[in-house]
Amino acid sequence: MTNVTMTVNGKAVSGDVEGRTLLSSFLREGLGLTGTHVGCDTSQCGACVVHVDGKPVKSCTVFALDVAGAAVKTIEGMANADGSLGVIQQAFQDHHGLQCGFCTPGMVMSAAALLADNPKPTESEVRHYLEGNICRCTGYHNIVKAVLAASGQDVAAVAAE
């Protein structure tokens, strides 16, 4: 076991991990932050996406020790300071961008990374950016709509919800 230290959602945290401990396991088992989900073992579903130093990362495909010292942000850190939903989260609720909720944390984290990089994406840019986040429930229609809405764009023209 090795001690690892990092910042998670603005708080310094540390814990003992093995070399093989994945960041997703450290977050879920070590810190109890179970909002980060694991939906596959081949790095494709994206349910586990978190931000590491501002960049989207599949937390099931990085060792906790490899991001020692980094600033990590998870779905638990996405609400406003007063606990209300952040802009992207609110847009997902308003536009029914989630059903079972399992892919949602990764989807929100990827959407946040997109909008940080590209504040006014086109529909096509949103779809391409989210290609590494698999949703089985929504057919993506309302997810794309929610991301466009979160970017402040008018989604009234988008086909019926």
Partner: peptide, 9 residues
Amino acid sequence: IGDPAVRSR
């Protein structure tokens, strides 16, 4: 290559 999260790493 891959997707945005893969490209980060």
